[in-house]
Design a protein around this nucleic acid. Structure first.
Lengths: 160, 160
DNA sequence: GTGCGCGGTTCGGCAAGTGAACCCAGCATG
DNA sequence: CATGCTGGGTTCACTTGCCGAACCGCGCAC
């Protein structure tokens, strides 16, 4: 029997949904917080652990999967008088998660705040506050989901 | 002992971080996928279950917490010749998660695709594609994290 | 060599997620 | 009325994931 949801275009192929795909990469516990730290410039295992308070084993695992997925790279470095260690840096793929992280942060700032936002983002050039906006390619600012139509790609196309 | 991370402004109060706060509301497994369906107009328990394939028990729990957090409401309805049931609808607070979801989807479209994006978003008014953009309040488009400075709020202010 | 600190790995216990079975209200049917 | 069916859950046994503490091993300092 065919599903007939109240909204006609809700019948797209969920198994290929990009939200689910993204979450399979960064949706585990701590992953997005690791990336938050990465965007703040934290690169070393110990610093990450201290900043996050995550169990070492979990942190090890999350870093490994993020590296495996190409979101971070693991690069050797060597500080004065210490042995070689590794640090974790964002790749382009990882840096491209910035808008998502900013959007999540903005929501928390707005709806969960019990005071001023704990972290303010400002444009390095002009000092003005940075935020995420929904825009369309004609340059309009989009107010919200009500103004958006979701269209499913043609089904039946096999996986490449 | 005070933490001294290599980056000076990385020392903000993580315990109040809005990313972590947001994730504590929508970061559990399935939560964001439930919201994806909500944005597509799916409102009924059974439809959600069928669309997601999530275990009923988990779905029940996620819906309950999303309602408790004020992201969804649970409202009675009654279809012709059926008994009363409940449906789950987005609140303003929930609708405001749209940019975050779109950002996650965009990332997946870009980096995980093995074909065209399974779901295209277009501006209802003009038909142009919808995307998330990072902008500053002076109207500039922000290229990425490199152009952003994160500034921690003054510490020491107790939790209101 | 011994000690020590960093970056992990291992381990036992607990919480969360999973699928299948079960339950129950209420409409439909006979 | 009894009976069955259906949607929306709950319960249960099992697996997976997360947790904190203990342990390990490399390489520098002594």
């Amino acid at each position: 029997m065919v599903i007939l949801t109240p909204v006609s275009d809700a019948t797209f192929d969920r198994s290929r949904c990009s939200v689910a795909g993204t979450l399979s990469v960064v949706g585990e516990k701590w992953s997005l917080l690791v990336l938050r730290e990465a965007f703040l410039g934290v690169r070393r295992f110990g610093d990450l652990q201290q900043a996050l308070g995550a169990p070492k084993a979990v942190l090890t695992d999350r870093l490994a999967t993020l590296v495996r997925e190409g979101v971070l790279t693991r690069e050797p470095y060597r500080a004065e008088g210490e042995r070689q260690r590794h640090e974790y840096r964002l790749t382009d793929k990882g840096r491209d998660l910035y808008p998502a992280l900013v959007a999540l942060m903005a929501w928390g700032d707005r709806w969960l705040a019990d005071g001023p936002p704990p972290l303010a983002l400002e444009h390095r050039d002009c000092g003005a506050a940075v935020r995420v906006a929904l825009v369309c390619d004609d340059g309009h600012e989009v107010g919200g989901p009500r103004e958006v139509r979701a269209r499913a790609a043609e089904a039946g196309v096999p996986r490449a």
